[in-house]
Design a protein around this nucleic acid. Structure first.
Lengths: 178, 178
DNA sequence: CGACACCTTGAAACCCCTCAACGACTGTGG
DNA sequence: CCACAGTCGTTGAGGGGTTTCAAGGTGTCG
């Protein structure tokens, strides 16, 4: 944003389709940053058009991926709009764990999280300073620990209860022709 | 949400495609409410599959619509995450005016807005009480008036400046095969 | 007339931000 | 080797934005 601040929309993890949102749009004011080394497969707009003509089943799958993507963004919106910093942080870290474990990167209750506190703060719409205090609260309540780039969830049940976390919006099955 | 609160994701206006987000997803925890009388054209999942097979150009258009939709949601996320209540309200009402005028419903600087203050508050992630005070601020600053269901923008330039509003994310052209 | 939804206002409390400062660690150049 | 800058995490104090609690005003509808 103009004042130097930024809002992180979402965090992409291995296997995600990057940039699907902006594929068909000319104007776009968002960008990407890498947090780790990444392995990319690039696909041009040309290819998308061909795919839609030749393999409509793949095209449906693409729309499905866009829908899943949007479900995550929408939940993020609800998270920021209706939860305080504590529940918001808990919800975000629970979600990230679930998503990572779904693609086989660590367990949902203990995973590598290469985010600095200031990045996490930009994603959650709070100050880095306040996030630091929130993390301390979570640590002292023996709910969750974030140390040396590793998230460890100590009490998933209480955490999910407090955050109002329900992973239903992550468990989407690909569409199949009935 | 469980505690009775709700977060409004977005406001659909005439011409919008409703429910595209959930078309291909089985699990979905969001709902719709009508604010005015509406005229609906219903389209089943069956039809979507046929469309993808038979008219791939239409399928591309559908993905494009989903992208535009998501651009609005993303901007809403940024709005709630990074702006205070004053700028947030201004931004939201500027956007709504722009969208309505794009489809020929009123002018961008004066349009019918059938939202109660409590609905508006649920969309903006603030209390209805606080939104009331924010609207008073905007009124007393001679920036914007919301009275009897009509939004009147008095000083668009200052308002856009304050809100950091740039309509670029609304001005999307449909994709065409090069 | 009462019931109800909506808008409005005040006072106190709370959450979160801003400002300021410090320690630990890393990489860099003298 | 050490001084230095830079990023990151941490903590305290003060202030401001927002919520909560409480109350009252308006209009509509049965």
């Amino acid at each position: 944003m103009r004042d130097g601040g930024r809002q992180i929309i979402d965090i992409q993890i291995p296997g995600d389709f990057i940039g699907l949102r902006s594929l068909l749009l000319r104007t776009w004011d968002q960008g990407f940053t890498t947090l780790t080394d990444v392995e990319l497969a690039k696909i041009g707009t040309e290819k998308i058009w061909d795919m839609f003509r030749v393999t409509p089943r793949l095209a449906v799958a693409l729309l499905w991926v866009a829908s899943c993507d949007q479900a995550v963004v929408v939940e993020h919106l609800v998270n920021i709009g209706k939860r305080d910093a504590l529940a918001r942080t808990a919800h975000f870290l629970l979600e990230l764990g679930s998503r990572l474990s779904l693609v086989g990167h660590g367990e949902a209750d203990s995973y590598a999280c290469p985010l600095s506190q200031s990045i996490l703060a930009d994603a959650l719409g709070v100050t880095a300073i306040h996030l630091n205090r929130v993390l301390r609260q979570l640590r002292e309540a023996k709910l969750l620990v974030f140390k040396d780039g590793v998230i460890t969830i100590l009490d998933r049940k209480r955490l999910a209860e407090m955050a109002g976390f329900d992973s239903i919006y992550l468990d989407h099955q690909p569409p199949v022709r009935d």
